[in-house]
Design a protein around this nucleic acid. Structure first.
Length: 573
RNA sequence: CGGGGUGUGGCCCAGUGGUAGGGCACUCGCUUGGGGAGCGAGUAGUCGCAGGUUCAAUUCCUGUCACCCCGACCA
């Protein structure tokens, strides 16, 4: 491609509403433009990168037996009602009505559609396993779009679905997809980590997220040298040993203390001169509308994802003030597990409260707290479980030897072991070897294609611009003719141009190459080349042509090398 | 949705109760020619939109919309 004819509108200045480095660079390098909040246009250069990512994914999917198809973005509500997700998905689902008033949504994911196809056309175990995938624009009405294409209302994604006759096969295949995803990340040049994750609205038995490591990432992950890795939402907490309990003080009698207007652990702790570790933090949640009391140690926090999955609830919200008052008999801030007049809501305690001797909590009475609360003697949790957030300094739940390392990442892929969640809901069955009807065992696997583009930039850039990995680069090389100082000698002007054209012709047979034939000064061309992040820069000028050489510079290195004109083809990439 | 902020040529921003300005970009000319050139000339804005106050509003007030930031969702 000749630069003079290419639509690559680069910007010297950064649009002021750009929040992250990748977005700034994508705008400046002319990869994308913003149409509206969370809605972006992919310009030719950006699309080239997107297509490169797409092709890498396609190759890896095909290698593991995937077959590409294309599903509709517009989907009838009925299918979503079958799985209950029409209601469950909430406001994030873009809903529309047709002229007849029939309800549709713009697909945020395609489990319903694919399951519908398979239940209609797959009858026998002989047709299994089956792996189908597509690339498509997905729609999610994000609460707050941000970080450019990384969290957009409309984004490009590869989603894959596999169908199996047996659990064993589904399990084996999950591992194969997992490896393919790792391969994709490697081919994109990522520093990444696959971690255990929560399954969210997709559901299923377990899942892994593929995280591109970047300090600017939205996700927080923990990892251990033993190999364990998890999203903090999912990370298991190690149960404290009960030894701590034995060394502790004797149980003291319960004592009520006047704590006017002190509602938080910090306030009461300061007043009583006690550490947060002494507190039994008490919260009241509504799980699918039913109130539950939840306890956690004062210096810890509830992990709502864990609680939700422990309760098998689909919706979990903190109870409103009036509800709390009705249940505990006191305003928010004075709830506690010790209840004289039995309030009949279940108590779920985190492991962390088990060891609290002579603890402190609300007295279920306005302006009063209780001291010397002891588990077993004063209250009995309905269940004790791991429902707290992991904290810095925590031990690895697997090896229990090392301290977990905290880092940040960008989630570019997510694999789910779905099981029969969708096939059951949609009555999708096949006949097995024995002629018996079974539900398909499913897996689903997503990769944010557009997000990968941003993640790649987030992970690889410098002050001057993007530094593309060769596999993603929109052009592998850029040829820059530089004309000499003073009046250009006609001969050399011609020769520089001639050499550029020759290299361009030759290289173009093998790679996508950009020839910067614009009538611009050298500085402008260099700046743009750096901004665009083209891996190889070939500078052709009178200076080096005297020795029959051209200049080679790799974007990811500082040094500049000279090469014989004829050898350029061998050197590049 | 709650809290905060911003809307002025394509981009970055200044400014004012008397109908608008700089830099960059763009067009033309001359000079220039290895890291976003210099000089000169020029094109381009109903000052987000609607209402109100006023002799007069881009400026003050009210509303509204859009966008951005901080919190609850996800590839």
């Amino acid at each position: 491609m000749k630069f003079s004819q290419a639509f690559i509108p680069t910007l010297k200045e950064t649009p002021s509403d750009a929040d992250t480095i990748s977005l700034k660079l994508m705008l400046r390098a002319g990869l994308i433009r913003k149409l509206s909040s969370g809605i972006y246009e992919w310009l030719p250069l950006g699309l080239r990168v997107l297509k490169n990512v797409e092709q890498i994914i396609r190759e890896e999917m095909d290698k593991i037996g995937g077959q590409e198809l294309l599903l509709p973005a517009l989907q009838p509500a009925e299918l979503w009602e079958e799985t209950g997700r029409w209601n469950l998905y909430g406001k994030e689902l873009c809903r529309i009505k047709d002229r007849a008033g029939r309800e549709f949504c713009l697909g945020p994911t395609h489990e319903e559609i694919i399951t519908d196809i398979v239940r209609r056309d797959v009858r026998s175990y002989k047709q299994l396993p089956l792996m189908l995938y597509q690339f498509q624009t997905k729609f999610r009405d994000e609460i707050r779009p941000r970080f450019g294409v990384m969290r957009a209302k409309e984004f490009y994604m590869k989603d894959a679905y596999s169908f199996h006759a047996t659990e064993e096969d589904a399990g084996k295949y999950y591992k194969i997809v997992f490896d393919a995803y790792s391969k994709i990340c490697e081919r994109c040049g990522f520093k990444f980590r696959a971690v255990e994750a929560t399954t969210g609205t997709i559901g299923g038995s377990f899942s892994h997220e593929f995280m591109v490591l970047a300090d600017t990432g939205e996700e927080e992950i923990v990892s251990c040298e033993c190999g364990y890795g998890a999203n903090v939402e999912k990370a298991e907490c190690v149960k404290e040993s009960l030894e701590f309990r034995v060394e502790s003080l004797e149980m003291q009698p319960l004592e009520e203390i006047h704590t006017p207007d002190m509602k938080t652990v910090a306030e009461v702790g300061k007043f009583l001169n006690e550490k947060p570790e002494k507190f039994i933090k008490t919260l009241i949640y509504l799980a699918d509308g039913k109130p539950v009391m939840v306890l956690v140690k004062g210096d810890c926090e509830i992990n709502e994802e864990k609680l939700k999955s422990h309760l098998k609830a689909t919706e979990l919200v903190l109870a409103a003030g009036e509800t709390v008052e009705k249940i505990s008999g006191a305003p928010v801030g004075f709830a506690g597990p010790v209840r004289k007049d039995k309030i009949l809501i279940p108590i779920y305690a985190d492991f962390s409260v088990e060891n609290i001797i002579n603890g402190i909590s609300g007295a279920n009475k306005k302006d009063y707290h209780l001291k010397n609360i002891n588990i077993g003697r004063d209250y009995k949790p309905t269940e004790i479980a791991d429902i707290r957030k992991i904290k810095k300094g925590a031990l690895c739940p697997r090896c229990k030897k090392h301290e977990l390392k905290f880092s940040r990442g960008i989630e570019v892929g997510h694999t789910f072991k779905l099981g029969t969640k969708y096939s059951k809901a949609m009555n999708a069955t096949f006949l097995d070897v024995k002629g018996q009807q079974n539900f398909f065992i499913m897996g689903c696997y997503g990769i944010g294609v557009s997000r990968i583009v941003a993640a790649a930039i987030e992970q690889s850039h410098d002050e001057s611009g993007i530094i593309w990995n060769e596999s993603l680069a929109p052009y592998k090389a850029i040829i820059i003719p530089v004309f000499p100082r003073g009046l250009p000698s006609v001969a050399y002007y011609g020769k520089v141009k001639d050499v550029c054209d020759r290299i361009y012709e030759k290289l173009s047979q093998k790679y996508d190459v950009l020839l910067d034939d614009r009538d611009e000064r050298a500085g402008v061309k260099f700046k743009d080349a750096d901004l665009l992040g083209i891996p190889v820069r070939i500078t052709v000028s009178e200076k080096t042509l005297k020795e029959n050489k051209v200049e080679i510079k790799y974007r990811n290195k500082n040094s500049v090398n000279l090469s014989d004109i004829e050898k350029v083809l061998d050197i590049v990439i």
